[in-house]
């Protein structure tokens, strides 16, 4: 039950570990209590080789230098053990990059605590997504920062899905960028968005605005369509039963599968024709 004893096999197993490099004192120096330091070394980051443990210490010190408390850091590493693998230099670059993207003190710490996975992403990856949001989806710099701050998981979303989701919201639902942010679009998956919107659309409760932005009916607020709980959506917006919505989802899924199948078959035919021509 003593974590020290329990994990005491590790030092012998790992190669580059020597007492002189014992990171424990350094952690204490950074402000961790002995218990926290041990937990960090022997539980959170177990399985990593000794020399890496030394390196991640620099990563931890980067977090400390952001003014985050040791207990908080411990929680973060618990939530996202992968962070143990991030070297000090890298960690610093990533934090700097987030700053450059507009995350100011306070929001920076908050988003890291809430979504530590953000720091496992290279600046390149984050920048690609942000640039896509800005250049292709025409979000303003400020809006991109807001996405980063409030919906950091967007950075790891499948790129194709993200693109479809934006296009769906923009063209099919007629949402403007600001509305997308308010509606919680970046919190939901494309599938769920599609279910809810097409349910309302086929029920005659949602219309795509025309070129002038006009509809024949008053659409419900995007926030109520997209961001709310399913219960709220069904009882207040659609006014339908859960049973109906379940069946609808099954049917839509099958419709899509069959559409894709048809497309595949069609493209398959083309290939045959092409090879026949040649």
């Amino acid at each position: 039950s003593n974590p020290m004893q329990h994990h005491s096999v590790h030092p012998q197993q790992s190669s580059g570990w020597s007492l002189s490099e014992d990171p424990l004192p350094s952690l204490l120096h950074l402000g961790f209590t002995e218990g926290q330091a041990r937990q960090l070394l022997y539980e959170q980051c177990k399985g990593h080789h000794g020399h890496k443990v030394t390196m991640h210490l620099c990563g931890v010190s980067t977090l400390i230098s952001l003014g985050m408390r040791p207990s908080n850091i411990l929680k973060i590493l618990q939530k996202c053990p992968d962070l143990c693998r991030v070297k000090g230099v890298q960690m610093q670059q990533r934090v700097d990059n987030l700053r450059k993207l507009g995350l100011v003190e306070g929001s920076l710490q908050r988003v890291i605590s809430y979504y530590p996975k953000l720091l496992t992403l290279t600046p390149k990856k984050v920048n690609v997504v942000c640039r896509f949001l800005q250049e292709k989806c025409l979000f303003t710099t400020q809006q991109v920062t807001e996405i980063l701050r409030n919906f950091p998981a967007t950075m790891v979303e499948d790129f194709e899905q993200l693109e479809y989701k934006f296009q769906y919201a923009y063209f099919r639902m007629g949402l403007r960028q600001a509305e997308m942010l308010q509606s919680g679009l970046f919190r939901v998956s494309l599938v769920d968005l599609h279910y809810r919107h097409s349910f309302l659309e086929r029920r005659g409760q949602y219309q795509t605005p025309d070129k002038k932005g006009q509809t024949r009916i008053v659409n419900p607020r995007p926030k109520d369509v997209i961001g709310g709980s399913e219960y709220a959506f069904l009882s207040q917006v659609a006014k339908a039963t859960q049973e109906e919505f379940r069946v609808f989802q099954k049917l839509i899924l099958r419709e899509q599968e069959e559409e894709e199948q048809q497309e595949e078959e069609l493209s398959g035919d083309e290939e045959v024709e092409e090879s026949g021509d040649g």
């Binding site: 086929r202 409760q205 109906e244």
Partner: peptide
């Protein structure tokens, strides 16, 4: 009236 949306979505599905 209120029943129409539920009929409508059904007619537009398989």
């Amino acid at each position: 009236g209120d029943l129409w949306p539920s009929v409508r979505v059904a007619m537009l599905c398989e």
